[in-house]
């Protein structure tokens, strides 16, 4: 089956790619771009491990065909760290011990980033809503919510 031409901006870098008709954004990110921070969990939109940001919105990358987001701007967990060091969200996750096995963490970080980009001072309820599509089987969530609250404070400061 013929491949399709798409152009994506991922973490600020432009890529011209050929994608298959069944290729999911998750596959493109991991297999073609070798950005393996984004994880595949359930593959059916339940767990949020594959969450990335597409045009400012948190999206399950397992539920999107890459061809559907041709021309989009995408941020993955690899886009958080900059030359000046770790992102305030990453620092807060470490500080609050919001990571145990770590498999859900990239998705959690992306959902949290999408929230803080549009709502820099979220309430606890708004944080919970932003993270409701991300499952974590280790932490019990409290440390993660604490970390997002801390990042919001640090980032705004």
């Amino acid at each position: 089956m013929a491949k399709l031409d798409v152009e994506l901006t991922v973490n600020g870098e432009k890529h011209k790619l050929k994608v298959g008709s069944q290729e999911r954004l998750l596959d493109t990110i991991r297999e073609q771009l070798k950005l393996t921070g984004t994880k595949e969990g359930c593959s059916v939109g339940e767990c949020g491990a594959c969450t990335v940001i597409v045009d400012d919105q948190a999206v399950n990358s397992c539920m999107v065909l890459t061809a559907q987001v041709d021309g989009s701007e995408i941020i993955t967990v690899e886009g958080l760290e900059s030359k000046s060091g770790l992102h305030p969200l990453q620092k807060a996750f470490i500080e609050k011990q919001a990571v145990q096995c770590g498999f859900c963490t990239p998705g959690m970080l992306m959902s949290a980033l999408a929230l803080l980009n549009t709502n820099p001072e979220p309430s606890k309820e708004e944080i919970k809503t932003a993270l409701e599509g991300n499952l974590c089987r280790c932490t019990g969530y409290q440390q993660i919510i604490d970390a997002v609250e801390m990042a919001a404070e640090e980032w705004g400061a």
């Binding site: 948190a58 539920m63 932003a130 409701e132 599509g133 991300n134």
Partner: peptide, 9 residues
């Protein structure tokens, strides 16, 4: 419906 990620799509 769903979650934030689902509602966005």
């Amino acid at each position: 419906i769903g979650s934030t990620q689902i509602r966005n799509r």
